[in-house]
Computed example of a mutant assay.
Amino acid sequence: MSDILIGALELSQRLERPDPPTLLDASLPNSPVAPYVAEDGQTLPGALEFDIERVFSDQSAPFPHTLPALDALQEACSKLGLSIDDDIVVFDNRGVFSAPRAYWLLTQAGFTHVRLLDGGLPGWVAQSLPVQQGYSEPTPLSTPPVLKANPSVVSVDDVQANIATPRFTLVDARSAGRFSGQAPEPRPEFPSGHVPGACNLPFGDVLENGHLKSREEIARLLIDRGLSPEDHVAFSCGSGITACILWVAAELAGFERLSLFDGSWTAWVMSGRHQG
């Protein structure tokens, strides 16, 4: 699906048209698993804030970044003025890091025209394109969009059942050290390691200089792990953010049977399954 991505120059041209796309800034605060960026308030002209941590996550869930309930998602989209058929471009301030989470949330809810800015804000700035300070104000909808429940989520119980009776391959996006148990988790109270039967594809392996690698390179990485486009693949990480980078990468490579372990390693550890 080559139309998932849009480059900075193409986007800048689209923004000059009478019907420009809606820009959603899905940046997260600085993270120990991603390069540091200056929190200077820069964003693309006209961009709205897509707040993953405080709005587009279930605040009552015991672990971070959990998919919100459908009614809460509809309300959040309504407040941003997002209609189901809108032309939307998501991006973040690290290149490709948290914007894939926004892409996953929206496309799985039924939004039909969502693209990811490859290279994100750094790629935009590298082209000397204009920026603004702070977010633009949205125009809320009078009626919330009618969204669908996310069909791609697998639960802790699904992942547990998959160990005994494999129905999908679980691919973990964390670093090789965290996956093997040799490196600590960013949250010191959590052990590292992995779900039995999972394989490891660190999210950084599908990226190069803040951009996604070519679909051919990504396909090679997936094939090297014994996967083919016909397989059912579920992605996991620490808390559901970088797993979405692999989701987008797999879509680019032509994989279609995709799922996401939304709670990821955090949910697995908190459930006590890692001790079994």
Rank of each mutant, 00 (worst) to 15 (best):
residue 4 I to A: 06
residue 4 I to E: 08
residue 5 L to C: 07
residue 6 I to E: 03
residue 6 I to P: 04
residue 10 E to N: 13
residue 11 L to C: 12
residue 11 L to F: 12
residue 12 S to Q: 15
residue 13 Q to A: 15
residue 17 R to K: 15
residue 20 P to R: 13
residue 21 P to K: 11
residue 24 L to W: 09
residue 26 A to N: 05
residue 31 S to G: 00
residue 31 S to Q: 09
residue 35 P to M: 09
residue 39 E to A: 15
residue 39 E to S: 13
residue 44 L to M: 06
residue 46 G to S: 11
residue 49 E to Y: 10
residue 49 E to K: 13
residue 51 D to V: 06
residue 53 E to M: 08
residue 55 V to Q: 14
residue 60 S to W: 00
residue 60 S to F: 00
residue 61 A to D: 11
residue 61 A to Y: 14
residue 64 P to E: 12
residue 65 H to Q: 10
residue 68 P to N: 11
residue 71 D to E: 14
residue 72 A to C: 05
residue 73 L to N: 00
residue 76 A to Y: 07
residue 76 A to F: 07
residue 77 C to T: 10
residue 77 C to M: 07
residue 78 S to D: 00
residue 87 D to S: 15
residue 91 F to P: 02
residue 91 F to V: 02
residue 91 F to A: 01
residue 95 G to C: 08
residue 97 F to W: 12
residue 97 F to P: 04
residue 103 Y to I: 02
residue 104 W to H: 09
residue 110 G to W: 05
residue 113 H to G: 00
residue 115 R to V: 06
residue 117 L to S: 05
residue 117 L to R: 04
residue 120 G to M: 12
residue 120 G to V: 09
residue 121 L to C: 02
residue 123 G to A: 11
residue 125 V to I: 15
residue 130 P to S: 10
residue 130 P to G: 06
residue 134 G to P: 02
residue 135 Y to Q: 03
residue 137 E to T: 15
residue 140 P to G: 12
residue 140 P to A: 12
residue 143 T to L: 13
residue 145 P to R: 12
residue 145 P to F: 12
residue 146 V to H: 14
residue 151 P to D: 08
residue 153 V to N: 04
residue 157 D to W: 02
residue 159 V to Y: 01
residue 159 V to S: 01
residue 160 Q to C: 08
residue 161 A to H: 05
residue 162 N to C: 11
residue 162 N to H: 09
residue 163 I to M: 08
residue 164 A to H: 09
residue 167 R to M: 03
residue 168 F to P: 10
residue 171 V to D: 06
residue 177 G to V: 03
residue 177 G to F: 06
residue 182 Q to P: 00
residue 187 R to E: 07
residue 193 G to Y: 03
residue 193 G to D: 03
residue 194 H to D: 05
residue 201 L to T: 01
residue 202 P to R: 08
residue 202 P to C: 07
residue 203 F to P: 00
residue 203 F to H: 13
residue 206 V to D: 11
residue 209 N to M: 04
residue 210 G to W: 11
residue 211 H to K: 15
residue 211 H to S: 13
residue 212 L to R: 06
residue 212 L to N: 03
residue 214 S to N: 08
residue 216 E to R: 13
residue 217 E to V: 12
residue 217 E to A: 15
residue 223 I to D: 14
residue 226 G to P: 12
residue 229 P to F: 07
residue 229 P to Q: 07
residue 229 P to V: 07
residue 231 D to R: 10
residue 231 D to P: 03
residue 232 H to R: 13
residue 234 A to H: 06
residue 237 C to K: 02
residue 242 T to W: 01
residue 248 V to Q: 05
residue 249 A to R: 02
residue 250 A to M: 10
residue 254 G to R: 06
residue 267 A to F: 10
residue 268 W to C: 02
residue 268 W to E: 01
residue 268 W to R: 01
residue 269 V to E: 07
residue 270 M to H: 11
residue 270 M to W: 01
residue 271 S to D: 12
residue 271 S to L: 05
residue 272 G to Q: 05
residue 272 G to M: 04
residue 273 R to C: 09
residue 274 H to L: 08
residue 274 H to N: 14
